[in-house]
């Protein structure tokens, strides 16, 4: 047991240490960085990226990639807005439809990759553009509004965004979702096969396991997470504008990579992904507290991603050396 902690834990420890270091840095260098409102902002700006990142971690561990998550989340939010404003569905039904929509796209991604044998990069790039276009087509490129706190359905915002006292509710759901996905990935067969496929797909197939089912399921989980993320995006912003939200998927994938999940598959953890998500939102709010504009955030996120990958490559090299000697 100790051994397995030692094997998989080092990167997470490093990422966690980086999180602390970055936090302390901004606590000293930023204005009011440790204040309650900034802390709440850090938590609030981690939700929807957090959902996407947790979901896409499953796909990345199988050795695949899902580029569609950002566009699917936006499209799902637009579909929800359309159903709420134009079709007049009650808000609870709209929320279920949003999750169902994301899951459906995830399922299609899975089919494209497993049955039609498309490379995941191409399949999900295609579905990203399909979702992007679909969002505009369905809404007629018009902005969709979700109920704000003041409207009759305002409970939606209080339950999924902020309580009246200002507590960021999304974080609670993110943690629940984290625990849920953590159990799936670490305690069930689904997770075991997802790791196994990423490690050596052919070996899994030769062990008599239906690789397509489990690989497809990883995409379904990723799509489900994108659908779930759309609820929190809608609750946070309430105004959904078609053709926005570009690059959210890349933020999510960056968080996964910072958390130590290998893009070549077989290796990774959801705890790492959560740390990655918080590193990114601390970075974002920290730079704001230093009065630096948004492009700096992008710039430094890039640096952190490169650093995380470099550490991983270096550690793998070292681990191989040790193996050869013993």
């Amino acid at each position: 047991m100790l051994k397995s902690i030692r094997n998989s834990g080092t990167h997470k420890m490093l990422a966690f240490a980086a999180l602390i270091v970055i936090y302390i840095f901004f606590a000293i260098a930023g204005n009011n960085f440790t204040s309650v409102s900034t802390t709440l902002n850090i938590l609030a700006s981690s939700y929807y990226v957090g959902f996407l990142a947790l979901g896409v971690t499953f796909v990345i561990i199988t050795g695949g990639i899902d580029l569609s998550i950002g566009a699917v989340m936006m499209c799902s939010a637009l579909v929800g807005g359309q159903l709420y404003r134009n079709v007049g569905l009650p808000i609870w039904a709209v929320l279920i439809a949003m999750i169902a929509f994301g899951t459906l796209i995830g399922w299609v991604n899975g089919l494209l990759v497993t049955k039609l044998k498309l490379p995941p990069f191409i399949a999900t790039l295609g579905m990203m553009m399909v979702s992007l276009g679909l969002g505009s087509i369905i809404t007629g490129t018009s902005t969709k509004n979700f109920p704000t706190i003041l409207e009759p359905d305002g409970w939606f915002s209080r339950v999924f965004f902020r309580t009246e006292s200002g507590f960021p509710m999304g974080v609670v759901y993110l943690i629940i979702f984290f625990i849920f996905t953590f159990i799936i990935l670490n305690k069930t067969k689904i997770g075991r096969y997802i790791y196994a496929i990423g490690s050596n797909e052919e070996a899994v197939r030769l062990s008599g396991i239906k690789v397509n089912v489990w690989k497809g399921l990883a995409f379904v989980i990723s799509g489900f997470a994108a659908g779930l993320g759309s609820i929190f995006y809608a609750a946070t912003y309430t105004v959904i504008i078609p053709n926005t939200g570009n690059g959210i998927e890349l933020q999510a994938i960056a968080a996964v990579v910072i958390g130590g999940t290998s893009l070549s598959g077989g290796k990774g953890s959801l705890t790492g992904t959560m740390i990655g998500v918080f590193i990114m939102s601390i970075l974002k709010n920290g730079l704001i507290s230093m009065n630096l504009p948004a492009p700096f955030q992008t710039f430094f996120t890039g640096i952190v991603v490169l650093g995380a990958v470099l550490i991983d490559v270096y550690r793998n090299k070292k681990a191989n050396k040790v193996k050869k000697l013993s």
Partner: peptide
């Protein structure tokens, strides 16, 4: 059952996880 000429193992999993792949448990949980 077959022992393949070229090794077909999942390097990231443990010995036990490799041997019992596909036969982890009857239910969903490991």
């Amino acid at each position: 059952s077959i022992v393949h000429q070229e090794l077909n193992l999942m390097n990231h999993l443990t010995a036990a996880q490799n041997i019992f792949i596909g036969r982890e448990s009857d239910g969903l949980f490991l």
